[in-house]
Every structure is written in C-alpha cells, then in structure tokens.
Simulated assay, not measured.
Amino acid sequence: MGQKLVGILLNAAMHGGVPRLKTGQESLANYEEAAAAYGLTPCFLKLSDIDTQSGFSSVYMKTNSQGYRRHIIPTPEVIHNRAIYDQRSSGVERLLRQGIHVYNTCNRYGKDQIHGLLEQNRELQAVLPVTSAGISGLKEMMGSYTDLILKPCRGSVGNGVMRLTRSGGERWIWSYSLTGSKRSIRTPVNPGALPRALRARLSSVPYLVQERIPLAEINGRPFDLRVTVQRGWGGAWQVTGMFAKLAAPGGFVSNIARGGEALKASSALEKAFSGEEAARIRMSVLSLSLSIARELEQSLPGLADIGLDIGVTKHGHLFFIECNGRDQRYGFRKAGLSGVWKDSYRQPMGYARYLHEAAIRINSY
C-alpha cells in the first residue's frame, strides 16, 4: 500500500461501530488528523481480526468516497492499544513476540498494584494516601480515621466507590450509589456490626480502603485534577494537559460519568487559591505527574499514554489518587479545551512515528 500504518486496537463493541462512526468517546476524526500530521495512516482493528500466523489482519480504513471499509493488510508494525486487556493477554503477547510494537500494552492495572509500585519510591510515598485493604483493613482504618474512601481495585469511572464518614461518637454514615445511578444513598452504620450489603461488596471483589483526602473545594464541591501524560515524538514523557473534575453537588466522587463537571484546571485552581498559589500548585502537579509516569514505566512495559488523578488539599498539598491506563480524553472537550483534546490524540501518533523511525534505524545496522 505504500503508507506508514499505525494500528488502533479497539474492543470488539467499539470496533464494530467504526463504519457507522459510532465509537463512543473515541474520535475517529482526531485519529485521522493526528496520524496525518506525522505522515501515518490509521487503521482500526480488534484482536480477533489479527492473524499472527499469516501476518495479515482485517482492518477498517477510511476511503474518501465510501467512508470506512474493510481491508486485508499486513499487520501494522506499530499498534496503539485502546482496548481493555489483561497484562497476561495471550493475543497481545503473540504480537509482541512477533516484533510488533504494541504500546500501552496493558491499560487496566489494579489500584493496589499501582499503589504498591509507587510506594517503592521514597520521594513519592509522601503523596500517597494511607491505604489498607478488605474488611480487616476497613476495621483497622475506622479506628484511626474519621473519613474513608473504599475503591474496587479494578473499578473505573467511579463505579463501586463508597465512602464511610464518622458523624459523631461511634456513629458512621455509609455513602454509595446504586449501579447505573448518580444519586448517592446514605445509610447509618454501626462499626461493630457492618451491614451485610457492605460486607458482601468488600468480599465480592478486592477493595482498597484509603483515608479520604480533604480536597480543595469550589462552592462546597470538591475537585481533583486529571493530568494526561504521554510519550510523543522523541519518546520522552510530557504532560499534554490537565483539567479539573468537580464533584456533583452533594457528591463525593468527581468522575464526569458520575455527574462530575469538567473545568479548566487554571480556572478551578484560581477559584480555590490565590493567583500565586494556584500557579505554584500547577507547576508542582506537572512535576509530580512526570515523576509518577517515569516511576511506573520502570515496572510496566509498553506504558505510553496515561491519565493521572491528582488531588489538591485546601492547604495546597498534593496527593496521588489513581492512574488510568486508558485515559478518557473527552474531559478536555467538555472543559472547553478542544485544542488540548486534539493534542491528546496527536501525541500518541507522534510516538507511533517515533517507533517507526526507531525500527528503521535498528534495521539499518
């Protein structure tokens, strides 16, 4: 075909929507524009359409007159993974063994795994919330803290996150949302006899129990910062941008999918802090985010495109909240940062071009 191809690996459901331009929050137009800027042609594929024996794959590619159509092509040498696969995915492993560059090889890591990796770095220990796990960990933490966040290790977009708050004496309040609902339910809890439903949740899947960070607020609504950190042309980590996630009124999670609101980070920080302090915090967040990415890459092969949630307390202290291996970039668009939204697609395509050029240099020796 003559083009330099970059594969965009999608989950089956999203991949099926490509010819109808129904890919949820993934922008096909942004991929096309970003890839073209680096002399690349994007092709969209799913794992089951990659034949590692023949070296060919069935992909969707855009034609000028007919939109996206199926093509059978040699499997792209460079693939950006935007699908959810386990670290031990046999399909991805087969591609890697064949010398295919799959970056963001895995993009679903357990919160406990990420916390454990960062905890090994002494300098980063200061930005990690005190953390325990399971029912025994919950009881221990309830003896030391008055406000706790409970997170499923494998949860995403705020699903399954709960809060336990001491409201006076031995009385606690358990706050949570029903599946598919953005409304928070509050239930009194006796720490000596935890509700069966709470125990069932903690027993069904691994949970982290963390001290709740007293986040800075805007009109009584807490917010944190989503920082997109990516490798681009040249291969080095860089911060593409950040935006603030403001919790819904009365809510305790800031996820946009749970009713949170996306704001420009500078605007949110300047509403919560003085101008000078807001600038200092922003620069500190940039530095911390790069340090986290560089630490994680030591243990997570293929890491190239992540979204970090960074909390800021009312006193301006920073805390790491979590790492998102498949960053949902649409928050930039919702925050009115359309240029940064497009940049969040452009950087990974720059990295794809960098991998192409690196392969050429290696093969030329």
Rank of each mutant, 00 (worst) to 15 (best):
T228R: 07
R280N: 12
E33R: 14
I114W: 02
I292G: 01
G116A: 11
K271Y: 09
K22F: 10
A133E: 11
A304V: 02
G155Y: 00
R294A: 09
N190K: 08
A247C: 05
Y207A: 00
N121C: 12
M142E: 05
Y31E: 02
E93R: 14
L40N: 05
G16F: 04
G160I: 07
A257M: 08
G259I: 04
S284D: 15
G110N: 08
R166P: 01
A352L: 07
R326P: 05
M242Y: 07
G116W: 10
G67E: 09
W237F: 08
G110P: 04
L225F: 04
R20P: 07
M283S: 13
I8M: 08
R326S: 11
V285P: 02
R108I: 11
V130G: 08
K182M: 10
A279I: 04
I50P: 02
E270P: 04
V59Y: 02
L202E: 00
D309L: 03
V59I: 12
F252Q: 02
S364N: 14
S344M: 03
G134Q: 03
G55K: 07
P348R: 03
V18C: 08
L96S: 09
S48R: 14
R82N: 09
Q125Y: 02
L215W: 00
H101C: 10
Q3N: 12
E170S: 13
K22Q: 15
G67F: 09
Q298E: 09
V130T: 11
A268P: 03
Q238E: 13
M349G: 00
K22N: 13
P206Y: 01
N255F: 06
S266Y: 05
R20A: 15
G260L: 06
Y145L: 10
A13G: 09
R196P: 03
S144C: 12
L5T: 06
N255I: 03
S144R: 15
A197N: 13
M141W: 03
D49L: 12
M14T: 14
S289A: 13
D309R: 04
R333H: 13
L5E: 08
D305C: 02
S267Y: 13
P195E: 08
V78A: 01
A293S: 04
